[in-house]
Simulated assay, not measured.
Amino acid sequence: MRYSGNIFGSESYRGTGIRTVSGVTVTTTVLSLFSVAAAIYVVANFGELTAEIAIWTANFLSSGFPVLVVTVAVTYFVMRLRWKIRSHFWRW
């Protein structure tokens, strides 16, 4: 199992220590505890979190950055299309 590429396989090749608890089990347990704590925090502070998200979104949209991104993207695609048309015309 050591070189088979299976990350959930047996870890009996590890050195001395606790052999009954694998690294996968420890990682799963720790991440599960973090997820439960985050879920409790979201449920307890739902109103505050949604208000913060709404304020951040309003500030972001009013900053003009999305308009800049869309303008740059449209300009890029128009220039790319013009270059393709020009290069295909001369190869024809």
Rank of each mutant, 00 (worst) to 15 (best):
S63G: 14
H88M: 08
T20C: 12
R14V: 03
I18F: 15
G47P: 00
R2G: 06
Y3S: 07
A39K: 01
S63T: 03
T25Q: 14
Y41M: 01
T16D: 14
F8N: 12
G64C: 07
R86C: 05
S62L: 14
T71A: 15
P66Y: 10
F34L: 07
R80Y: 11
W90D: 07
V36H: 03
F34K: 01
S63K: 05
H88K: 05
Y13L: 06
T25C: 06
I53P: 03
S32L: 05
S87M: 12
F8P: 02
R80G: 13
S63L: 11
F34E: 02
G9Q: 01
R86M: 00
A39T: 07
A38G: 02
I40G: 05
G5K: 01
V42Y: 04
V36W: 10
Y3W: 14
L49R: 03
V69K: 04
V30H: 11
I40W: 02
S22M: 09
L68M: 10
F65H: 12
S35D: 00
G47L: 00
L49Y: 08
Y13D: 05
V42H: 03
T50G: 01
G47I: 00
F89P: 00
I53C: 00
R14T: 02
W90C: 00
K84T: 10
T25E: 04
S62I: 03
S12G: 04
T28F: 10
S32N: 08
M79C: 03
S12N: 14
S32T: 12
F60C: 07
Y3T: 12
S87H: 07
L81Y: 15
F8I: 07
A37W: 08
L68V: 07
V21C: 09
F34Y: 08
I53F: 05
R2H: 15
A73D: 04
E11I: 09
W83Y: 08
Y13F: 09
S63A: 13
V78Y: 08
V42Q: 01
G47F: 07
T25N: 11
T50S: 11
M79Q: 02
Y41G: 00
T28L: 06
V21T: 12
S4A: 14
T75S: 12
S22D: 02
I55D: 01
R80D: 10
V70F: 13
T25Y: 13
V74C: 02
W90K: 12
N59K: 13
F77E: 12
L33E: 06
S62C: 06
R82L: 05
T71C: 14
V42T: 06
W92K: 04
G64M: 13
G17T: 13
H88Q: 07
I40F: 05
A39H: 05
S4W: 06
G17H: 10
Y41I: 00
P66G: 02
V74D: 08
S32E: 06
T16Q: 15
R86E: 03
A44N: 08
I18H: 14
I85L: 13
V24W: 09
A38D: 02
W83Q: 12
R82F: 15
A73G: 02
V74F: 14
